[in-house]
Design a protein around this nucleic acid. Structure first.
Length: 206
DNA sequence: TCGATGATTGAG
DNA sequence: TCAATCATCGAA
């Protein structure tokens, strides 16, 4: 499967967040001369903007930590959170914006599930990649991968095409204290008659 | 330097 | 409900 090209990320951050639902996150694991691929379908994302978004790391302007958010789109922006976890984002914005990124909050495991179990300390498949900290642990994504280009298949972390989701649910973002009004969270959903059912692989924020 | 905070998670 | 756990950043 081909990587999504850079122009995909040159769009309004919330549009990119929505369009990433159903796409495939790929993590290449290099062990000696062996190469293994972990794959997951993106089922939950959130958009974080610039000066219009007080919840965004970029809200106060550029700093050493958030500099990647101000750089080229289609790059991995990864940071350490709560002293315990890594959060994985992809930079995305329209050219007239100075910064923006999409947080990947959950994926549905597709390939390399046994390896993901090994990376996780807990052996509960229902929590394997459900939540931003859990998916980075399962796919062994850390700050070492920050800045990598997700538009090229040679990158340890990249994104390829996938399936169009039957439906997408948008809602308020999770775990933030500012900018809580914005509905910039997107979740893979199924249609059941006139109802929408959220993917069980997406987190709920408790 | 210092202290508060945080795009979370697992255990109790 | 709470503790783990620490990099980041603005204030002092």
């Amino acid at each position: 499967m081909r990587c999504l090209q850079r122009s995909f990320y040159h769009d309004a951050t919330e549009h990119v967040a929505m369009n990433l639902i159903g796409k495939t996150l790929v993590r290449l694991i290099r062990k000696g001369n062996k190469l293994r691929a972990l794959r997951g379908m993106i089922v939950e994302t959130e958009a974080y903007g610039f000066r219009n978004d007080p919840a965004s790391h970029a809200f106060q302007g550029i700093t050493p930590r958030n500099a990647v958010m101000f750089g080229e789109v289609g790059k991995a922006y990864i940071y350490f959170c709560y002293g315990n976890h890594f959060c994985f984002n992809i930079t995305a914005r329209i050219p007239t914006f100075k910064a923006g990124a999409v947080l990947i909050r959950a994926v549905q495991p597709l390939e390399g599930i046994g390896i993901m179990r090994d990376f996780r300390k807990i052996y509960d498949d229902s929590l394997l990649t459900k939540g931003p900290g859990r998916l980075t642990q399962a796919m062994d994504i850390s700050c070492a991968n920050s800045g990598q280009d997700v538009t090229v298949s040679e990158s340890d972390v990249h994104v390829t095409g996938g399936a169009d989701p039957p439906a997408i649910i948008s809602s308020k973002r999770i775990g933030i204290s500012k900018g809580v009004d914005k509905e910039w969270r997107y979740v893979f959903a199924y249609r059941d008659k006139d109802r929408l059912i959220q993917s069980t692989y997406a987190s709920t924020g408790r």
